[in-house]
Design a protein around this nucleic acid. Structure first.
Lengths: 193, 193
DNA sequence: GTCTTTCTATAGCAACCGATACAGAAAAGG
DNA sequence: CCTTTTCTGTATCGGTTGCTATAGAAAGAC
């Protein structure tokens, strides 16, 4: 997983994997069957251990605004974990692809699209509930959230440190429209006028 | 150039290049000497024809704010040119790299860092001139600009259309602090209090 | 102990990688 | 016309890719 995370799908060879895993090629193929299958399992392990924060933030927080704020804040941390590759595996692991690994690319592309759709759905939910004004552009807003998230991954890869990214995440939220629940006061949860 | 732009450095083979260029391998090596050299020339051709907008915006505009606004607006167009690969070649062409092409990766990384440094320098210039308040965090602000720019490239690759990206660019500027020249009125150039 | 089952390591498969040696065709000079 | 030079195409180099057949070692059953 770490090898795929750092170098991407095609740039990691079977020889690299057998070397870092301490096993020989036949054992690897007996256990995983295929390089693609092994990659898919590595992706699922990554999502489980390091990539679940975005889905959790987008489902657990009460408003889309708080969800995105938390997602970006935690992304700053997860994209700069000490001792781990920088950036997000889902974003970077399949960007330079041959024709034969197009399916792998589209697989990760689907996962990214899933996150954007979930975010857009949360925004539309806030529009329906009156939390956000009725003329809010949900598609643009969701794309903006994904843009900042994926840009932070690239910046982490290029060496940006965690505190800088956390400040970027906080700054990015200044462009996000304030909802009804955080118009006055700042608790936003218990205080209802 | 288009092949490297779309698939990246390592994912394009010499056979791909000789096929799309209509020449055989020995002619290619006689003309360019090396795959790496050919890639570098392709990068320079890309920067000249499609990637100069960011440098121009960052040097020609009177303030850092207007520079970033223009850079992001034009990026939305250049990252979604009809008939060309999506996104920015400098950002995506060398992300999945083997150990042998680390130099290529660092070369593009250096070009990206150059843009961020130029942006940060423009911001500090505005701070010195009083256009921006003295406690402005130039490093965070420059990283934010680069984050949105690179995130837009990723979004373009994932299928975002031009108008959506232009709205994202405009929305992103809502997080950018207003300078002294655009506090009141909106011309900002001829009107001096 | 002996037999059976599971696992692992050696060796090698066809296909492709970047890069060249060499021969033949085309063009330029007289 | 002939010679010299430049260019292009065929064939191939050693190395690596993902993947596997086959033989040998380790472990469990009794």
């Amino acid at each position: 997983m770490r090898a795929f995370w750092e170098h991407g799908y095609e740039a990691v060879s079977i020889a690299d994997l057998t070397e870092t895993m301490g096993i020989k090629a036949p054992s690897l193929y007996a256990a995983f069957g295929d390089k693609r299958t092994l990659f898919e399992e590595a992706v699922e392990a990554y999502v489980r251990d390091f990539g679940a924060f975005s889905g959790q933030a987008l489902t657990e927080e009460p408003t889309a605004r708080r969800a995105v704020a938390r997602m970006l804040r935690e992304a700053a941390a997860f994209h700069t974990l000490p001792g781990y590759p920088r950036g997000c595996m889902i974003i970077t692991a399949a960007t330079n692809c041959t024709a034969q690994s197009e399916e792998v690319m589209r697989s990760l592309q689907g996962r990214r699209a899933q996150t954007v759709e979930l975010l857009e759905w949360r925004i539309q939910e806030d529009i329906r509930s009156g939390e956000l004004p009725g003329d809010t552009d949900a598609h643009t807003l969701a794309t903006y959230g994904a843009t900042v998230l994926q840009g932070m991954s690239q910046q982490a890869r290029d060496g940006a440190d965690r505190t800088t990214l956390e400040r970027v995440a906080e700054l990015a939220m200044a462009a996000w429209p304030a909802g009804r629940s955080d118009e006055e006061g700042e608790g936003g949860s218990a205080r209802e006028a």
